[in-house]
Computed example of a mutant assay.
Amino acid sequence: MACIDALKAISSQLIVLHHLAFYGPMSDAAHVLAPGLLDWFSQYARIAVQVFLVISGFLAARSLAPGGHLMVPRPLQAIWHRYQKLVVPYTAAILIAIAGAAIARTWMHHDSIPGAPGLHQFLAHVLLLHNVLDFDALSAGVWYVAIDLQLFALLMVALWAARRCEQWFDVGGSPMGPLVVAGLALASLFWFNRDATWDIWAIYFFGAYGLGTLAFWASEPERSPVALLLLCAVVLAALAVDFRLRIAVALAIALLLGTARRGGWLEHWPQAQFLAFFGRISYSVFLVHFPICLVVNALVFHLAPQRPVLNALGMVLAWLLSNAAGALFHRYVESGAPLRALRLALWPAAHEPVQRQQAGQQRST
């Protein structure tokens, strides 16, 4: 989908630039050259995470319940498949992050460098429980991977519960899934997302994720555009109660995706091969950029600690190397044949896509 690829490409670059501006001494030294730009990257570029939350919800609705009814016959197996799809490249990236931090520590001491991990800390990361168990992160942004799995599982449980209610109460052809998801999204928007103590749990982020899910259902070409307008009105009400820029951005992205789907240009606009490429590698760039940035930060700090121009060039170099590393990681790890072989060896039953399960279910009915 060209529109989604473009959004992922731009957002992943903003996250890399945010971490370059927020962490490490290079941005401190280069700040005098472009204070406004670096401050913007440091304070606001992180909101690009909301784009990924909305897109994830949008695509989850498309794959799990395109008509509002859960189409997955084995929800727990689908959650397990999602976990192993996320965690195998993520674990490889964590190992790279550990190595990168060890290299960086030889050249500088800085708060942005994670300490050497213990076994429990590493296992907590692999199980995506590091935030819940209050372990320090081994790389920037790893919280998102854990939240992504939580959100997927919460959506799956909500859709499964809705399916059971449909069976129990014999509601006919009317899906209850959108109602349950809307209830969770409302709870997040009006309550949980306003309390940062919930930010290690899916419900805190379900407002944005649910917006993506609801935008998919509301953008059915046969459906009245009133559904999207109603979605917009509810979110505007939540913003009137407590304005949050992150939710405003999530609403804008949800409306963009919904409008693009209704208009038939979600798959075809924009026509830009480079955006499609950077969209494809966005998860890999997200996973590996931080250790690359750490090592470049440490090297430049070691060689030219107080030279703004060289530190600014170091930031550019770190950004370029992050994308190059992401492209290699995507090719050889995230989607590479060795990784697929490892997945089949470790989880022989998990390689069958959820879509194939759905197709089999449809053929048998």
Score class of each variant (00 low, 15 high):
residue 362 Q to I: 10
residue 341 A to N: 09
residue 128 L to G: 06
residue 164 R to P: 05
residue 97 A to K: 08
residue 264 G to P: 04
residue 85 K to Q: 14
residue 154 L to T: 04
residue 268 H to Y: 05
residue 161 A to W: 04
residue 97 A to H: 12
residue 198 W to S: 01
residue 248 A to N: 00
residue 202 A to W: 02
residue 342 L to Q: 03
residue 78 A to P: 05
residue 89 P to W: 02
residue 41 F to L: 15
residue 237 A to F: 04
residue 153 A to S: 12
residue 80 W to Q: 12
residue 338 P to V: 03
residue 58 F to D: 00
residue 240 A to Y: 14
residue 160 W to T: 15
residue 14 L to I: 07
residue 192 F to P: 00
residue 215 A to H: 00
residue 320 L to W: 03
residue 271 Q to F: 01
residue 59 L to S: 08
residue 172 G to A: 06
residue 285 V to C: 13
residue 54 V to L: 02
residue 211 L to E: 01
residue 185 A to R: 00
residue 54 V to A: 00
residue 317 L to Y: 01
residue 165 C to E: 02
residue 327 A to Q: 10
residue 159 L to E: 05
residue 3 C to M: 14
residue 97 A to S: 15
residue 155 L to Q: 06
residue 118 G to M: 09
residue 176 M to P: 05
residue 24 G to Y: 00
residue 19 H to S: 02
residue 188 S to M: 01
residue 300 V to T: 12
residue 326 G to I: 06
residue 269 W to Q: 12
residue 59 L to N: 07
residue 98 I to K: 08
residue 324 A to G: 12
residue 212 G to D: 00
residue 279 G to N: 06
residue 303 L to D: 00
residue 124 A to D: 07
residue 3 C to A: 06
residue 335 S to T: 13
residue 198 W to Q: 06
residue 69 H to M: 08
residue 232 C to D: 11
residue 315 M to Q: 07
residue 51 V to H: 01
residue 323 N to Y: 03
residue 91 T to Q: 01
residue 128 L to T: 12
residue 73 P to F: 02
residue 351 H to Y: 10
residue 102 A to H: 12
residue 164 R to G: 14
residue 164 R to N: 11
residue 273 Q to K: 14
residue 289 H to F: 10
residue 35 P to R: 11
residue 181 V to L: 09
residue 188 S to A: 09
residue 71 M to C: 13
residue 68 G to M: 11
residue 287 L to K: 03
residue 183 G to I: 04
residue 324 A to T: 10
residue 344 L to T: 08
residue 56 S to A: 15
residue 111 D to K: 01
residue 170 D to G: 13
residue 309 V to F: 05
residue 120 H to S: 15
residue 292 I to K: 03
residue 21 A to G: 08
residue 153 A to M: 13
residue 289 H to N: 14
residue 195 D to E: 13
residue 73 P to Q: 04
residue 210 G to P: 03
residue 120 H to F: 03
residue 68 G to Y: 10
residue 285 V to T: 14
residue 268 H to F: 05
residue 46 R to S: 13
residue 172 G to Y: 04
residue 45 A to Y: 03
residue 335 S to M: 07
residue 42 S to V: 05
residue 43 Q to E: 14
residue 317 L to K: 10
residue 185 A to P: 05
